[in-house]
Design a protein around this nucleic acid. Structure first.
Lengths: 178, 178
DNA sequence: CATGCTATTATCATACATGATAACACCTGG
DNA sequence: CCAGGTGTTATCATGTATGATAATAGCATG
């Protein structure tokens, strides 16, 4: 039959197309039912990333689905109310050759990012991002030059799942996945 | 402590604010971390409905959360590949006084909507919407005049949960909830 | 009292998603 | 072959979300 759960790592695009095929609706037909346009729906099903929730809602309704949006704390991540001092303490183990503190981070953000990406765990990367802020973090990632290919590939795959387009050359978020 | 599941019927706005308070982040601080603006975040936390998924993603990342978006077939709803003839068959029981068919629907959409909202179940309403298409359904709902107050209140509460702003006077979707 | 946070909200320029349209490439049945 | 369906994609006008800015108000602290 069909899979109700859809808990796999499908993108929103793939989920939409899957549900539509389950209903055996043509793209044009679903667009009409959902009161949107074939152009938009085709974009949505082909790697679009900047969806509008209101449009997703209309599509979900036409598909007889409920659009569920959750903010799930990332598994294995520290408790939510961790503060900056604790983050710095935690990251310090990656910096055996110096004392890691706010001044170091402020002065050598790219070097810090390289170190954490090379040696840290997912938790460390997330904490670093909280410490630096998203834009400085992303900017620094793109300035890294000493990262091993292995580390780049690894974080690329991980961070993409977390919804962060990190290793792209441009910091502007692309609307398309492919 | 805090609730990880957040499975309650919170709006996206409420979920965002809840997560932010768990992190004890100020609105301005989170906006900076997520590389968005305080204006947008404040809108998002105060009843905004037309979110952009890419912005939600940035906020989720800054909150150490994964943004999970699912299309869940509505519980108790028929199998997904039901076709129009079967829908008409199913709705026929609500029309004891005439034979319900495509012609009736086409000629008296408002009357049909009134009948189904007054006597049908959630499944019937969803099927009717699939049959009519979203815009005709919404348009017809707003033209209803003979609906009992009880039915209006009931479907208002139900359909709002399903993400459909039905009983509003204007068919244009508002960006704000309140 | 002032100072500095907090959050909200109005205004406005800009960026971008949407819908309409059309062109195109398919495939299928006549 | 044609005719009609599918889905994709380019272009463009328009609506609208976003970010910047500033004004406002609330609240705490000195």
């Amino acid at each position: 039959m069909y899979d109700n759960s859809m808990k796999m790592n499908l993108s929103i695009s793939e989920k939409l197309r899957k549900r539509r095929h389950e209903r055996t609706l043509s793209l044009t037909e679903l667009a009409r039912l959902a009161d949107t346009s074939p152009a938009t729906l085709s974009r949505y099903e082909n790697g679009w990333t900047r969806f509008e929730v209101s449009t997703l809602r209309k599509l979900a309704a036409a598909l007889g689905c409920r659009l569920k949006i959750e903010l799930e704390p990332i598994e294995g991540l520290n408790r939510p109310d961790i503060n900056k001092d604790e983050i710095i303490d935690g990251l310090n183990r990656l910096f055996w050759d110096c004392d890691f503190n706010s001044e170091v981070l402020e002065e050598y953000p790219v070097w810090v990012v390289e170190r954490v990406l090379e040696l840290g765990k997912l938790e460390d990367v997330h904490n670093l991002q909280i410490l630096m802020g998203r834009s400085l973090f992303l900017e620094s990632v793109q300035r890294t030059t000493r990262l091993s290919g292995k580390a780049v590939a690894f974080w690329n795959s991980i961070l993409r799942k977390e919804g962060m387009e990190c290793m792209k050359k441009s910091s502007r978020q692309a609307a398309w996945n492919s």
